[in-house]
Design a protein around this nucleic acid. Structure first.
Length: 515
RNA sequence: GGCCCCAUCGUCUAGUGGCCUAGGACACUGGCUUUUCAUGCCAGUAACACGGGUUCGAGUCCCGUUGGGGUCACCA
């Protein structure tokens, strides 16, 4: 096997310092697939004591979305994927916004032009698309054919000066390209498949390919871990590196993440579900955050997509993952995103994280989701966390506690619950409530322990199970048969509201019975 | 369609020629615990896509078939 000089050199270089980057484009929220890419890069940097760079690829101003950068940075922070160089923290290779590096790209394009490895292309977009259509009409794939003779640099510059909008294309070498990949091995792409692609658009900005290659070199990137959808870009990048005398980083193309039905996970899934009136699936990191997931669980789960620590290990902390992370354990087969398994992971993380950590996470959830939970103080929130043990996401707590901020007179009663718990056995549930409203009004203390004592004694006297008391109460207080443990439910709601709600359902007894 | 990548339970995966009558996890099914929901606990069902080789021996190596995916922009 023959390795290129650049390849060998980059190999040696990595012994000294690992440098990786995550390079999102500010076109929206951080996608869960992007988060996985970011995570793997981050893990690799941490594992080898290297640097993790965050670079913003914003060369296409038309696709720029306002607030996107802030959103991406915020979600990266939420995940705990802090960057060593990039926006807000700076670094030796600043700036980290490609939109601020135009002069650098222009300089390198000029050099390529001078050396003859790039040339001005005069076709207009209309001409190109016409050629493309013509090729398609004949069922052929359009390949850009290098003009002969080529316009000279002077001619190109003159055309540009004359107001003509020209592009610059990279002159691909005449040989097949070989990509060395850590997970796929050696990939050979036939020369016929490669064409002279555009490196400078007519607006003067570089294309992704060019900016990416220049920045990786200038920023000292040693390893490129990116999605497999980039595999066919890599030969182009390697060719440019060779033309410019750059090092070739070590590549590792990650398997792609799909939905359970095999489709690509995309924002479109959300739109489609919404159109059908369904609950939109979580696609962006932010969606999971708002849905009440823990970053610990999400990270742990996505780390296992396309990678495995082996030894049947699954649930592990980020630190353990860093320790176990290795390129050799990256998988090549695409993975499907199993939401059930994520939910299960989240449940387990909710059960094992410290109360302090859970409280902080719950507060974050409350603030980003706009939950009424945000109105409670820390003590109450910690209490809620404790009594709801067994919840799977914070949304479960939110749902189970919704009765707390419901308006007494606006509670809606679940028909099935009313029938089963209140009307059955000649209205035994209603009778129980009638009995309770009196007793509770006069009960001296309103603390959990005291109420427990009171209710269990009551059950013994009446010879019934606790359910015979608790369930009617739940329906009266929440409208459903679901609530936190009954004593806590009473305490949280308070005596006043408790009595008001019992009285209301008793008043509505006949109306409800008909409904 | 051309080129490229991939292929172990429904899903994520372990497996790097003998330790595999293929292991773990999620899901599923059954049971137990429980004041509701949930959690928890126990048990069970379930896979090497197919066909050829190579080898004493193949889930593991090679070839083909089939299937899935990626990519073919002046987007990234």
């Amino acid at each position: 096997m023959v390795y290129s000089l650049a390849y060998v050199r980059s190999r040696v270089l990595t012994i000294e310092a690992v440098k990786v980057r995550f390079a999102p484009s500010p076109t929206g929220y951080l996608h869960v697939g992007g988060a996985r890419t970011a995570l793997f890069n981050w893990l690799f940097a941490r594992k080898h004591g290297g640097a993790f760079i965050l670079r913003i690829e914003d060369t296409d101003r038309s696709r720029h979305v306002a607030d996107s950068l802030e959103k991406i940075l915020d979600d990266m922070r939420w995940l705990g994927l802090h960057w060593d160089e990039g926006p807000e923290v700076g670094g030796e290779s600043a700036p980290y916004f490609q939109s601020e590096r135009l002069d650098i790209y222009t300089r390198h394009i000029d050099k390529l032009l001078e050396s003859g490895r790039a040339y001005f292309a005069l076709e207009t977009p209309e001409e190109l698309s016409a050629m493309r259509d013509a090729a398609n009409a004949q069922k052929q794939t359009f390949k850009y054919r290098r003009p002969d003779p080529l316009p000279t640099v002077e001619e190109g510059r003159a055309a540009k000066a004359a107001g003509r909008e020209v592009t610059v294309r990279f002159a691909m070498p005449e040989n097949d390209m070989i990509v060395q990949d850590e997970v796929l091995g050696e990939v050979r792409i036939p020369r016929e498949e490669l064409e002279d692609f555009v490196i400078q658009k007519r607006d003067g900005w570089p294309t992704y390919h060019f900016a990416c290659v220049v920045d990786d070199e200038l920023m000292g990137v040693t390893h490129v871990l990116r999605g497999q959808e980039h595999l066919m870009n890599t030969p182009k990048h390697v060719a440019m590196q060779q033309a410019m005398g750059f090092r070739t980083p070590i590549y590792a193309h990650l398997s792609i993440i799909f939905n359970m039905n095999g489709s690509k996970m995309s924002k479109r899934d959300k739109e489609k579900a919404l159109a059908k009136g369904l609950v939109p699936p979580e696609i962006d990191v932010h969606d999971f955050r708002v849905a009440g997931y823990l970053p610990e669980a999400l990270l742990n789960f996505i780390s296992l997509l396309g990678w495995s620590p082996g030894e049947d290990r699954e649930q592990m902390t980020l630190e353990e993952t860093v320790e176990a992370f290795d390129l050799s354990r990256l998988g090549s087969a695409n993975a499907k995103f199993d939401r059930d398994k994520l939910l299960s992971f989240n449940t387990d993380w909710c059960a094992k994280l410290s109360p302090e950590r859970l409280l902080a996470a719950l507060k974050d959830f409350a603030s980003v989701s706009g939950s009424k939970l945000a109105d409670f103080d820390d003590e109450t929130l910690a209490y809620l966390l404790r009594i709801n043990a067994g919840y799977r996401t914070f949304r479960d707590i939110e749902a189970k506690c919704a009765f707390l901020w419901a308006v007494d007179d606006a509670i809606e009663y679940d028909a099935k619950a009313v029938r089963k718990v209140l009307q059955k056995n000649e209205g035994a549930g209603f009778s129980m409530l009638e009995h309770l409203v009196e007793l509770l009004a006069n009960h001296e203390s309103w603390e959990s322990a005291s109420l427990e004592q009171f209710l269990t004694t009551l059950c013994e006297e009446k010879g019934v199970k606790l359910g015979a008391v608790a369930q009617p109460l739940r329906v009266a207080l929440t409208g459903t048969t679901i609530s936190p443990p009954i004593y806590d439910t009473l305490v949280l709601l308070g005596r006043e509201k408790t009595l008001a709600r019992i009285q209301r359902i008793l008043t509505l007894k006949e109306t409800i019975a008909q409904g």
